[in-house]
């Protein structure tokens, strides 16, 4: 019980400390900020250690064993020695700290960059390009000319907006004449997208703020039951 109350007071102290920045930068805020930095770094370090080094690497290379009915110690899975390549690449990354052989860390970096490039090239082309184009090029009036006016207008807006939006991003030709007009229409669609994203961001931040105020008024002060 004591620890629960203590945790609520600590959380309230930290919450008010962060909000004190709204007045101006002050020692209370700096203290909370420093705690946040230290604890977040420690949290990610520990989480990555248990999830990746232990959970994926150690358990992968040295799978746990169990004793079967004959009393023999049996592995639950086959060891995956390929993971040692990942560990070697990881160790190479640490060589950055040794200036003389620091260039070896580029090998692991090259592996990450190459693999990311290869992986993203296919995935982005399939999900961001092909899939989006496929979803845009569709019968505007429904497959059997049975779509409602609401759906038809929506389909036309999506097709025109996507096409003109892409024209706006085409910078190899000067935006003049009919091309420039299309690019202008594209900007309008992009502005609607930015407006919608902005609206959503505001709402998500507001809901977090409401959550913190709710915590202060109910959990800490007990004013709301």
């Amino acid at each position: 019980m004591f620890w629960e109350h203590f945790a609520v007071w600590v959380a309230a102290f930290l919450t008010l400390g962060i909000y004190s920045f709204l007045y101006k930068d002050n020692p209370w805020y700096k203290l909370c900020e420093s705690i946040f930095v230290g604890i977040s770094a420690g949290y990610w370090f520990v989480t990555l250690f248990w999830d990746n080094i232990y959970g994926k690497f150690w358990v992968g290379v040295f799978p746990p064993t169990h004793v079967n009915e004959l009393g023999e110690s049996v592995r639950t899975a086959q060891p995956d020695y390929w993971l040692l390549v990942g560990a070697v690449l990881g160790l190479l990354m640490l060589l950055r700290l040794v200036p003389k052989i620091g260039w070896l860390s580029r090998w692991s970096l090259a592996f990450i960059v190459g693999a990311t490039a290869g992986f993203y090239l296919i995935n982005y082309f399939s999900s961001n390009v092909m899939r989006q184009v496929q979803d845009t090029i569709m019968p505007l009036f429904g497959s059997g000319f049975d779509a409602s006016a609401y759906v038809i207008i929506g389909n036309i807006v999506v097709a025109v907006g996507t096409f003109t939006g892409l024209i706006y991003f085409f910078f190899s030709k000067e935006h003049r004449g009919a091309f420039g007009f299309s690019a202008k229409v594209g900007i309008f669609f992009l502005m609607v997208t930015f407006g919608a994203s902005f609206g959503y961001t505001v709402m998500s931040r507001m809901s977090l703020l409401i959550g913190r105020i709710d915590f202060l008024l109910s959990d800490w002060l007990g004013l709301i039951r």
Binding site: G161, T162, L166
Partner: peptide
């Protein structure tokens, strides 16, 4: 309606643009 139509169109234009950019950058790196 804004989310499902004009916003979707803008999002798609951005996504296709990003996709083409990633493809060309990946090729340059490889």
């Amino acid at each position: 309606w804004i989310m499902n139509s004009p916003n979707l169109a803008g999002q798609r234009a951005i996504m296709i643009g990003i996709g083409l950019g990633v493809v060309s950058m990946s090729l340059r790196i490889i």
